[in-house]
């Protein structure tokens, strides 16, 4: 009876230790956080490149569609863009794909999209499901021209959600853990600049 009790106790203890070890492993250490920040910025820059290609009037339709597919892969399913302007402060919500399609369909002869060399990355916060979440802020300059005439221009602030999750992969029979970054909802607000 005593032996059986000890066995149960040992199993219970092992379970708790494993759980603690899993929690400890899931914490993001400060050095790792810097690497995650770089990865997040890389994904945001990829998004920036894709937006430039999609918005460019010289991009053929088939190429734009292919780039939209690639851009969509950066995002978590169901991600949305919440857009407001100086004229209309209420936020309008678009699915990512719909936002890209609207960008592609803009009625200008020439569209120029540039990014200011300013970004801000928030601290990562843990959410109830154990994933980490942060926000990267960047600024985009947009110009739409008809002929030589500047028809519209704005500068928008883009607050981009990033989700950070620990994943596992098998390489040569060994399990390797890595942190993956995926983009989420984006708040787009026009600035007065």
């Amino acid at each position: 009876m005593n032996r059986r009790y000890n066995q149960i106790l040992a199993v219970a203890l092992l379970t708790v230790l494993t759980a603690f070890s899993a929690v400890a492993q899931n914490a993001v250490d400060p050095n790792r956080e810097k690497a995650i920040d770089s990865l997040a910025l890389e994904k945001v820059r990829d998004l920036g490149k894709y937006i430039k290609i999609i918005g460019n009037k010289n991009t053929p339709y088939t190429e734009a569609t292919r780039v939209m597919d690639r851009a969509e892969e950066l995002f978590a399913p169901g991600s949305e863009m919440g857009v407001s302007s100086l004229a209309k402060e209420e936020i309008e919500y678009y699915k990512v794909r719909e936002y890209f399609r609207r960008l592609m369909a803009l009625n200008y002869d020439k569209v120029t999209i540039e990014w200011y060399d300013i970004h801000y990355i928030s601290k990562l916060e843990r959410q109830p499901d154990g994933r980490y979440v942060g926000v990267v802020t960047i600024y985009q300059k947009f110009e739409g021209r008809n002929g030589d005439k500047l028809a519209y221009k704005d500068t928008t602030k883009k607050d981009i959600t990033i989700y950070v999750e620990k994943k596992e992969t098998q390489i040569a029979g060994r399990t390797i853990e890595f942190w993956d970054v995926i983009l989420g909802d984006i708040r787009v607000s026009e600035t007065t600049i």
Partner: peptide
Amino acid sequence: DNQRVEEQLLASTKQLNQFFS
């Protein structure tokens, strides 16, 4: 103009997170 705008963006408290920091 670009530098002026970037200086303003840099000075701006862009997130509540940055306000805390």
